[in-house]
């Protein structure tokens, strides 16, 4: 099975729910377990929230999610054209947050890593950030 989708939406916080519910609907054809759906929803929510808060710093611009299903693998690419990340390694450290005044827990990347099989972050200051996440779905047996 192969399937692709692309979603583009404004970086407003109400769209966090829209994004994760849409991705959950897209992956439904993979016959995921409830837990797999919840894991992916959490990871999507983290990446989209990062784009809104950190990438665009509250300004309203576009976020895109490209989804791809290939056999049992789900791949999601979440991209913004925001400020980018200076030091990706540091940004991914648990409990690190660039915005402590916003009461961020610093656990966004930790949750993405915990709930997906693989995550890659690429970013250029001033150009934006792309997060690619992969997860094998439906391995829980027929």
């Amino acid at each position: 099975m192969k399937n692709e989708m692309k979603l583009e939406f404004d970086s407003i916080s109400a769209n966090e729910a829209f994004a994760r519910v849409t991705v959950a609907a897209f992956m439904a054809q993979m016959n995921p377990s409830m837990e797999e759906v919840a894991d992916v929803k959490t990871a999507v929510s983290e990446a989209v929230t990062n784009a809104i808060i950190h990438g665009y710093q509250g300004e309203i611009h576009k976020i895109t999610i490209s989804g791809r299903i290939e056999e049992q693998q789900l791949q999601l690419e979440i991209a913004d054209q925001g400020v980018g990340i200076q030091d990706i390694k540091k940004a991914m450290e648990p409990l690190y947050t660039s915005r402590p005044e916003l009461e961020r827990s610093g656990m966004g990347f930790l949750f993405m890593e915990a709930f997906m099989d693989e995550i890659q972050v690429s970013s250029k200051p001033g150009e934006g950030t792309v997060v690619v996440m992969k997860k094998m779905i439906g391995q829980h047996g027929a």
Binding site: K41, T42, S45, T49, E103, R104, S105, G106, M107, F111
Partner: peptide, 12 residues
């Protein structure tokens, strides 16, 4: 559903 923003809320 709860993500890391919920954790931030509780910690704050």
């Amino acid at each position: 559903f709860c993500d890391s923003s919920g954790i931030g809320m509780l910690m704050g």
